[in-house]
Each structure stands twice: as structure tokens, then as C-alpha cells.
Design a protein around this nucleic acid. Structure first.
Lengths: 211, 211
DNA sequence: TGTACATCAGTGAACGCGCGTTCACTGATGTAC
DNA sequence: TGTACATCAGTGAACGCGCGTTCACTGATGTAC
């Protein structure tokens, strides 16, 4: 026990401020939503002066990019996990779709940032790039596997896009509180998700797309 | 020809400032996007002092609501027009879907405002409300007609939601410039849209949902 | 091992900015008699 | 038809705010000899 024991005398040098800033940003997103996400707010949340982030990020945009990057990593893990848990080929797409939408429901503000910050740059979001192990490619390769080799590549591509759009649309829609009576009737949120996805061709269990 | 003929001596009282403000807002959206849409910018664009809008709208939110309202009206007209133009029952849903997405492509910023301003209020967007002649109901009633009386209402509802989500997802996605080579291969933007929608069960011509 | 010095990663005050909103005002219009 | 007055719909200056970013600075750390 030394002097100045009160209030955790955080050393002058933080040690890992970059990571701490990204986590502070995520905390702000969870608790106050995307509109509250300013550079100053992030610095404040991390307990640091408003100029400090500039030693780690060129500007606000670069910080947001880092936050989005973490988001896409998390989403990718969710989807990969769902894929591995799927019982059979037929349920693969449904499980991946459900995990996608559930991620967006658990992290709605982060989800928005993931898309918005690439919209600003007029660039495809990280997870949608044709990047070997992007989330988009995970879906496409799953489709390819499920569909078999005789299905033309263009159909695989279109089905992937269609599935992605549907999942994204559902993700955005679940921001809106409605359909409540419908959800109850169906037996809860997840049953509702499965119900909606079930009405989309490519998510039908046992019928891997009408590809 | 009277004195002061120079520069159109706009009378002190505007006459129809409310409408003019909404139109100014739309012009800003078209040319500079949603982030440029401030109350002050709208007043500027309308050639009026920053305080003037307060005689017509309680606050910024109310102005945005009015803008969104116009947007939903326009979208509703597009969709109704598409419905009327459809050659047969089987193509109804596809035509409506295409018109929805095309609207979002022609007015991307307005489209965002239509959804965002109700997200802020934690309320369903106007066009999605269960309001007799909302766009949502247009879709649902079309489904009901196409599906026939033996299909349970819950499936109609789910198919409507699924279709809406898919169209919304596609609308958001087309913000991102990609899939260009795919689009060219298919013969253009509209062919691409139809291709994607065609991979979603409920838009298949002649197969009114797998409801 | 000790010392001089460069570099790194913070601080905190300040900048200019555009925003939403309020305020006292004034010019134009409508209405009662 | 004219006049007095209330109301309406603008003006323009000002408010306080939080923002992103810059700046000169300083404390802590790492390195060469």
C-alpha cells in the first residue's frame, strides 16, 4: 500500500490506448447509440484528453473504421460458429441467416456503424468485400457447397446477394418494434426470424435455394 | 415594367413557405445527401432567414417528418403505378418490388430520411404502418390476392415482411457500387434487380410465394 | 551501471465552425366598425 | 369606403453547445555510449 492509493493512479502512459479507444467507442454505441459517437465522447469515455486519440488515429474516420473492423470480426465469428453448429447441409443457410440477424439485434448501433462508415467512403463494407475470408465469401462458398457443382456461378452469386439483402433488410427492420403480436403468436423472436427467412427461397431447409 | 425590376423582388410574405421548405429540403437531399440536411441549410436554400421555418414547423424533427411524408407518398405512387402496369397476377410482386428498389435508387437520400426519421422517434415508418392505404398494406393485399383464400393469414403476413425486408435490403445495398461486372453480364441494372428478386421465393413470377 | 538525449504518448487550452433555437422586432395582411 | 387594430409571417442578431482538430507543452520511456 503506497501513497496516492485513492482512485487508481492511472499511469501517464496508457499502455494500450488504441484498443481502449475502440472499446470505449463500442461502449458508447451500446449505451447511447450511433449519434452519440463523437471523437470527444470516445476520449472522455476512455478517460483521456480529446487530443490523445490523434496519436493513434489520423482522424475520426480512422477510429470509426477500426470500430467497424471489430464489428465485422465479431459478425464473422458468429456466422462461422453458426455454420459449424448446423446439423445438416439443408439447415446451413438458415442457421447462418439467423446468426446474422441476431448479431444485428444484439449490437444494433455497431451494426449501423459497420455499414455507415463505408457508405461515407463510397466503398463496400469490409464484410462484403470479395476477400477470401470475408463474411460475404463465407455465404457464397456455403451456397456453392450446398448447391453442388452443376449450378452456374452466376446463380450462386445472385443467390448470395439475394440472401445478403434479405438478411440485411430483416436486420434493419428489427430496429422497429412491431410485429409483436405476430411474434408472440409464432412463439418468440427467433421463431419469427425463422418464419420470415423460411419465406425466402434460399433459406429453405432441404431446398438449398431454387438456384 | 416597374421599378426595382432587378432580382425578382420576392414579397415579404412568401405565400407558401411550408411547401417551399419541404421542396428545398428535397433539393438538398438530392444534391448533397442526408448529412447536409440541417434546418439552417433548408432555410438558406429557400432564401429565408433561419428563424422563418419555426412559423411552420415546431422543430427540425417536424420538418423532417414532412419531408419523409412526401417521400412515402411518392413511393406509394410508384408502387401503385407498377401494380397497375403489371401484365398478370404472376408478375405483380416482381413489378412492385422492382419499382420499390428503383425508387430508392432514384432518391437514395430521401429514402434514408424516410427510415431514419422514424427510427429516431422509435416508431414504424409511415409506409410500413398498418394504415389501410400504406405501402405495406398495398403489398400485403397484393399477396393476399395472389395467394388465394386458402393460404393462412399468418403466412401472408410473413411473406409480406420477408418481401419488404428483401426489397429494403436490396435498396440499401444498391448504395454500394459493386457487382458491376455481374450487372453488365446480366444486361444492366434492371436485369440485375430482377435476377436478385427472382432468387427470392415470393417474387417468382407464376409462383406467388411458396406460401 | 549511469548519464545525456531523442522519441513517444500524453495534456489542456484554444481555434473556428455550423448547428438548433430564441428573441425582440417589423412589415404585410385581414377584420370590425 | 376608411380607419384602427389584431394577427400573421417574416427578419436578423444573438444564445449556448458540442464538435473536429491543432498547438505548444511535458512527463515517461527507450537507447547509445
Amino acid at each position: 500500500m503506497r501513497e496516492a492509493a485513492a482512485a487508481e493512479p492511472r499511469p501517464y502512459h496508457h499502455g494500450d490506448l488504441r484498443r481502449a479507444l475502440v472499446e470505449a467507442a463500442r461502449r458508447i454505441l451500446e449505451s447511447e447509440g450511433p449519434t452519440a459517437l463523437s471523437l470527444r465522447a470516445v476520449a472522455r469515455e476512455a478517460g483521456v484528453s480529446p487530443a490523445a486519440p490523434y496519436h493513434h488515429f489520423k482522424d475520426k474516420g480512422e477510429l470509426l473504421d477500426a470500430v467497424a473492423h471489430v464489428g465485422w470480426d465479431m459478425l464473422g465469428e458468429s456466422m462461422t460458429g453458426a455454420k459449424q453448429r448446423a446439423a445438416d447441409l439443408g439447415s446451413l443457410m438458415t442457421e447462418i441467416g439467423v446468426s446474422y440477424v441476431q448479431f444485428s439485434q444484439q449490437h444494433p448501433a455497431l451494426y449501423r456503424v459497420m455499414y455507415d462508415c463505408s457508405r461515407d467512403k463510397d466503398e463496400l463494407p469490409e464484410g462484403m468485400q470479395d476477400n477470401e475470408d470475408s463474411a460475404y465469401c463465407l455465404v457464397r462458398e456455403t451456397f456453392r457447397k450446398v448447391a453442388g457443382p452443376e449450378v452456374p456461378i452466376v446463380d450462386i452469386e445472385l443467390a448470395t446477394i439475394a440472401a445478403w439483402c434479405a438478411a440485411h433488410g430483416l436486420a434493419e427492420m428489427s430496429t422497429f418494434k412491431q410485429f409483436d403480436s405476430l411474434k408472440i403468436g409464432l412463439g418468440g423472436e427467433e421463431a419469427f426470424l425463422r418464419g420470415v427467412l423460411g419465406h425466402l427461397g434460399m433459406f429453405q431447409a432441404g431446398k438449398p435455394a431454387r438456384i
